[in-house]
């Protein structure tokens, strides 16, 4: 069972470090990661395994959202099912 974390915003030091340390803290395993910097903007998509998550998923979503707010980034953490059902027949 996976979830997708997307981060969009102004590039600063420590975005991936921040997100991945939160993942490690709550036992979410990073499966895949892609990121790019366009000018001063940062965009990242991270696929994480949430099967062994130590907190309820909704709580984990809040945690990442709060990190996003602190850093003025747009963070979306959603269950992979939404992408699978929307884009696969």
């Amino acid at each position: 069972m996976n979830a997708v974390v997307t981060v969009i915003g102004k590039d600063t030091v420590g975005i991936i470090a921040g997100i991945s340390s939160l993942c490690a803290l709550k036992d979410a395993n990073i499966v895949d990661i892609t990121q790019s910097v366009l000018g001063e903007y940062f965009a990242m998509i991270m696929l994480i395994n949430i099967e062994k998550l130590s907190v309820p998923f909704s709580e984990f979503v809040d945690l990442l959202n709060n990190f996003g707010k602190e850093k003025s980034l747009e963070v979306h953490t959603v269950h992979e099912d939404i992408f699978n059902s929307m884009h696969h027949i």
């Binding site: 996976n2 997708v4 998509i45 696929l47 979306h76 992979e80 939404i82 992408f83 929307m86 884009h87």
Partner: peptide, 18 residues
Amino acid sequence: MSIINRDDILETIEMIRS
């Protein structure tokens, strides 16, 4: 993104976001 296409993810996020 081996399982889910990157563009699909961005398309969905864009639908929700804006």
